[in-house]
Design a protein around this nucleic acid. Structure first.
Lengths: 123, 123
DNA sequence: ATTTAAAAATTACAAATGTAATCTTATGTT
DNA sequence: AACATAAGATTACATTTGTAATTTTTAAAT
């Protein structure tokens, strides 16, 4: 599948959060990001063309829903990002966040739990 | 400053690894990624225009070096990425990596050290 | 000094992207 | 049934990006 652009992703994020939704509901959800209605419609069309979302007719309107899985998308993008920006090493990202005080209590707790889980699985 | 594109970043990464370098040295470094010489030259020009790199003349050739800091770039991009893809939460990224077995011994060790460091600083 | 070859500068060009406006069509209303 | 209106479809258009080719300049060799 073709790449999903940044602005397309904003639309997709809405549908990952809650779906199905019709176009005007999506427009409303994106009003905060001051994205114009016509722009959202364009992006919906492009996402359909890219087979990232699908729809079914509901009266005059369409009901859209994602066709790709958010978690899969996230992990794939993460790998690509870390490859591109960090040469494939994850930990510099974490270290960078730590250094710039971007980590909070909750992050640390979750990191610990991830580590614990990982170690359990290594048995 | 304008955004740095993916292919531009590949060039910039070479210079972050070692600089200053002249164009043909950079071309050589990128030969592995089968990037055409002319393409590299174009990207060097664009990076100069974007003020991401600078140069000084050395004979007929230019010696290029980065003008922006890699760590700063990395943290900024990381924040943007995590905002865009994970809605701002770091830990799902790590958890995702863990779940897909993308974490190795070394990553875990570094994560632990980051956590330790973080806790020390919270005192 | 001339020629040449290598560097840099300029130009090219299609595809993707951001951002809408306009056109067409189907549906709800009167 | 006619019509207004709202949805979706199509068109628009400048900018960015990937990927080079062509042109111009200039230092190096003879």
């Amino acid at each position: 599948m073709q790449e999903i652009s940044n602005s397309e992703l904003a639309v997709l994020n809405v549908l990952w959060h809650h779906s199905p939704l019709n176009a005007s509901e999506i427009v409303n959800a994106l009003a905060a990001q001051q994205m114009h209605e016509k722009t959202v419609k364009t992006l919906l069309n492009r996402l359909v063309k890219k087979q990232a979302i699908g729809f079914e007719k509901q009266g005059r309107a369409y009901l859209y829903q994602p066709l790709i899985n958010q978690n899969e998308y996230q992990i794939k993008q993460s790998k690509t990002f870390i490859e591109r920006v960090f040469g494939g090493n994850l930990s510099p990202l974490i270290a960078g966040f730590a250094k710039h005080n971007e980590l909070n209590e909750k992050d640390i707790a979750e990191l610990k739990s991830v580590i614990e889980q990982w170690e359990k699985e290594q048995k």
